Amino acid sequence: MVNTLVQFRVDENDRTEAIEICSKLGIDLQSYFRICLARLIREKGIPFSMKIEEVKENKGISAMKRASKIAKEYGISDLSLDEINEAIREARG
């Protein structure tokens, strides 16, 4: 097997961080790249998903956005905290 030198440029901070991560995993950066290359060949493609997926919003954020929309529709989106608390007291009273 003939070895070939492969070189490319990368941001120094990224290289340093990658070396630190590899070190914690017990390998060096060169071994990591050889592992990646082997997986690329074995998988006959990128060995991880490269899709841009829609970020799903959690239910709490969705509820807050709906509440804001409703408040704007009723013209009450600019109430102060004191005004909101007063409206709550009146509704409970």
Rank of each mutant, 00 (worst) to 15 (best):
R9S: 09
I27D: 05
Q30H: 14
V2E: 15
M50T: 09
R89Y: 08
I46D: 06
L25N: 01
D78Q: 08
S62P: 01
T4Y: 14
E73V: 01
E12D: 15
I19V: 05
V2A: 15
M50D: 07
L37G: 12
L40V: 10
F8D: 04
R34I: 08
I41R: 13
L79S: 10
G93T: 06
R92A: 05
G60Q: 11
K56V: 04
I76K: 14
M50A: 05
E53C: 06
I70R: 06
G26Y: 00
G45Y: 10
I61T: 07
E53N: 11
I41Y: 14
A87E: 10
Q7M: 12
A38N: 12
R42A: 03
A71I: 04
S31V: 06
N3I: 08
K65Q: 00
I41H: 15
A71C: 10
E83K: 15
A67L: 12
N85E: 13
K69L: 02
E20G: 00
S77V: 02
M64H: 00
K59A: 13
F48Y: 12
L81E: 15
I46A: 04
V10Q: 14
E57H: 01
S23I: 00
L5R: 15
P47W: 11
A87I: 06
G60P: 01
D82G: 13
L81P: 04
C22Q: 01
E57Y: 03
P47R: 07
I35S: 13
S31L: 09
K44D: 10
F48A: 11
R39T: 03
S31C: 09
Y74A: 02
T4K: 15
E54N: 09
A38P: 02
A91K: 03
D28P: 03
E90F: 03
R92I: 10
M64G: 00
G75H: 11
I84Y: 14
D11Q: 06
Q7P: 02
R39G: 03
S77M: 04
R39N: 13
A38K: 13
K69F: 05
E86Y: 10
F33K: 11
V6F: 14
M50L: 10
A91Q: 02
R89M: 05
I41W: 14
R9P: 03
V10L: 11
G75L: 11
A38D: 07
Y32D: 02
E83Q: 15
Q30G: 14
E43T: 05
V6A: 11
S23N: 06
V55R: 11
F48S: 07
I19T: 05
F33G: 06
C36D: 05
Q7D: 06
I70G: 00
V6S: 10
I76S: 04
S80E: 13
A87R: 14
G60E: 09
S68F: 01
S80G: 14
R92G: 01
A67G: 04
I52P: 01
G60R: 12
K24F: 00
G93C: 07
N58T: 05
D14T: 10
G60T: 07
A67Y: 04
T4C: 06
